[in-house]
């Protein structure tokens, strides 16, 4: 049961859900949730290939860096969201139409 195709299927479902969340929802934070799902599916793929194809742990390092990037992305993204809310009183993605306030 624990085999490469099942892990790929799980990560595929995570990826598609992340994609649907990113496109369907118009709240900026919901889009960030989708991004987290997609990053996780990629990291899971790296770990799965490391286990089943080449056992040299480079995939684990890659997943580790993906987690680091995800943390940095979440921090900066949420800071931008909060700043945007202070200016516009809204977190609808369609209100973000200007580069300069």
């Amino acid at each position: 049961m624990i085999s490469l195709p099942s892990f790929l299927a799980i990560s595929f479902i995570l990826f598609v859900s992340g994609l649907v969340v990113m496109i369907a929802k118009k709240n900026i934070i919901a889009i960030l949730l989708g991004v987290e799902l997609i990053l996780n599916s990629a990291a899971l793929n790296f770990a799965a290939y490391t286990r089943f194809v080449n056992q040299n742990l480079d995939g684990h390092i890659m997943s580790l860096f993906i987690i680091i990037i995800a943390a940095a992305e979440a921090a900066v993204g949420l800071a931008i969201v909060i700043r945007f809310f202070q200016i516009r009183e809204s977190i609808h993605i369609d209100d973000a139409t200007q580069l300069l306030q």
Partner: peptide
């Protein structure tokens, strides 16, 4: 997948950091 360090990192970073940040941001906005 025998990636124990990765599992613990996932818990520490996401449960302890990212999700709480997101909850805060949702609440503040």
């Amino acid at each position: 997948l025998s990636a124990d360090f990765l599992a613990a990192t996932q818990l520490v970073v996401y449960v302890g950091g990212v999700v709480i940040l997101m909850l805060f941001a949702i609440m503040l906005t």
